[in-house]
Simulated assay, not measured.
Amino acid sequence: MIFNPLIIVASELGIRDLSTEPPKPKEQVKAIVTAFKKVGDAGIGSVIVDGVTDDQISELQANGAYTMKTDMSEFGKDHNYRSKSGAERIAATVNKFDRYYTHDIVVAVPDDMPELKPYYMQALMYALSDSDVGIATMVSPLTKEERSNTEIVKAQVDWNSDRIVYPLEGSKVGTLRDIRRDINNFDTDDIYKLVPIHAWRRGPLDRLIQLPPSDREFDEGTDLVRALDAGMRIDVTFVTDNMKVLISPEELIGDEIEG
């Protein structure tokens, strides 16, 4: 597989938990610059940053980022542009930047992920290696505390034993079957933590944003629920915090990924 992904690092991509204090402006700027650098370290695709404040834009440009700015005041708090994975907002950004569909894959990366690793971008591409897959994401192991935490979005996966990700030690690929916050609502104990970074092929992304959101989508906190309910195939790659990269994208084929 050879892709030409566009990676969008976005500020305020999800709905903030109103029970917590909002991040301070300086912390927001630092977070999005850090996310931009980590994604750039992956060496995959083109990276742009969708900021929401002038301070973010100025600091990002000083760090070499190509930037766009979204005016969040245009959307109400319940508008789906501010759903957890933000497909509508990402689609609006990419269609401004790449109206001629030069990029076949769009990746959305939130800026508030301390656990973000550069190899996450590589892992996503392997989940898209089957042409029937319209959307890709990742899952990681759940800790004991996270299993009972309903703020954590969880996933059930059918693993494909034939799809081993050899460049990433211990990784594998499967198909997403269900998404829930409450672990008691699954019919299996083999449950994982959903990593909130998603990749779409352009066609499925366009299709997804034409579909109305469901109540369960807002309950579970991700528009991947909408995609699942619409019958879209979503594949996932298993990742961990300390995964060893055995083969880098550059070692596979220039600056692209092949597999």
Rank of each mutant, 00 (worst) to 15 (best):
E146D: 12
E146H: 04
D229F: 06
E251K: 13
L6V: 06
P114L: 06
Q210R: 11
D55A: 15
S131N: 13
Y126R: 09
D41K: 15
D111H: 11
V107M: 01
A199D: 05
K37P: 02
V49P: 03
I257V: 15
D189T: 07
H79S: 15
D111R: 00
A91V: 00
Y100H: 10
T53E: 02
Q28I: 02
S248T: 15
A65I: 01
V106N: 02
L128P: 03
L194A: 14
G259C: 01
M113K: 00
P110D: 02
A199W: 07
N184L: 05
Q28D: 04
A155P: 07
R16Y: 12
E145P: 00
Y126T: 08
T143K: 07
I8F: 01
S129R: 10
S19Q: 06
A42L: 11
P141G: 06
D111S: 14
P204W: 05
D178S: 15
Q122D: 01
A230Q: 03
R216G: 02
D241C: 10
G14I: 04
I191K: 00
Q156L: 08
D98M: 15
V29Q: 06
G43K: 06
V29Y: 05
I48E: 03
L18K: 06
M68I: 15
M243D: 10
Y119E: 12
D104C: 01
L252S: 14
G231D: 05
F3S: 09
G40V: 01
Y66D: 05
G259P: 00
I2F: 01
V195A: 01
S85M: 15
I57R: 15
D111W: 02
D162C: 04
P5D: 04
L13G: 03
Q61P: 00
V236W: 00
K154I: 05
Y119A: 00
N95A: 13
D187E: 14
E88N: 14
L142N: 02
L246G: 00
L116M: 08
M138L: 13
E220C: 04
R147C: 02
